[in-house]
């Protein structure tokens, strides 16, 4: 437990590490969501052009 307290700086150290990993995870989620959105967009576009023909 003493290790986790980081002297008197525990709050600052843990906030920084937490923030960093939150941002990394956000980047991954953002990238994946964008990928799925593009694929959806392509499919929607295909359906539109199919109904035209």
């Amino acid at each position: 437990m003493e290790m986790l307290a980081m002297g008197k700086y525990g709050v600052y150290v843990w906030t920084c590490f937490g923030l960093t990993f939150t941002v990394l995870v956000t980047c991954v989620v953002q990238a994946r969501r964008r990928h799925r959105a593009v694929l959806r967009e392509v499919r929607r576009h295909m359906q539109l052009t199919e109904t035209d023909e």
Partner: peptide, 26 residues
């Protein structure tokens, strides 16, 4: 890794009218 993930989506979007993208989407 993150950059390549993003570039993949960018490429797909830019090539959204190409046949290979359409096949991939289906």
């Amino acid at each position: 890794a993150l950059l390549l993930m993003r570039v993949k989506s960018e490429v797909l979007y830019r090539e959204r009218r190409a046949r290979w993208v359409r096949r991939l989407a289906t």
